[in-house]
Amino acid sequence: MTETTSALPADDILAQALAWRKDGRKVALATVITTWGSAPRPAGSQLAIDETGRMVGSVSGGCVEGAVIQEALEIIESGKPKTLEFGVTNDEAWEVGLACGGKINVFVEKLD
């Protein structure tokens, strides 16, 4: 079960990550580090994920969040940070109904 609250500003995302951590949960942070073309979210955009897959924030407005969460759950266990690369083809963008067509790199790390 996941929920999104992408309307929150960045500080609320970090505050939420911190609150989860203090609550004893395992947490991962994903950050957009580079974008090319018409990426939906700018560099610096963040997503916090807890061990149950609950998330706040957004790195792509919905395009790649599912994949980021899968990786984040692994990184929460391994503790090893990783840079993920996503190319959003125009066809895929059409499928999910977004005006994408860009490419993004997302850095995912565990909060420990």
Partner: peptide, 14 residues
């Protein structure tokens, strides 16, 4: 990220 570093970051922003 270390939790302590995130706390420092949040403090600096506040």
């Amino acid at each position: 990220m270390k939790t302590a570093l995130l706390e420092d970051l949040q403090k600096a922003r506040a």
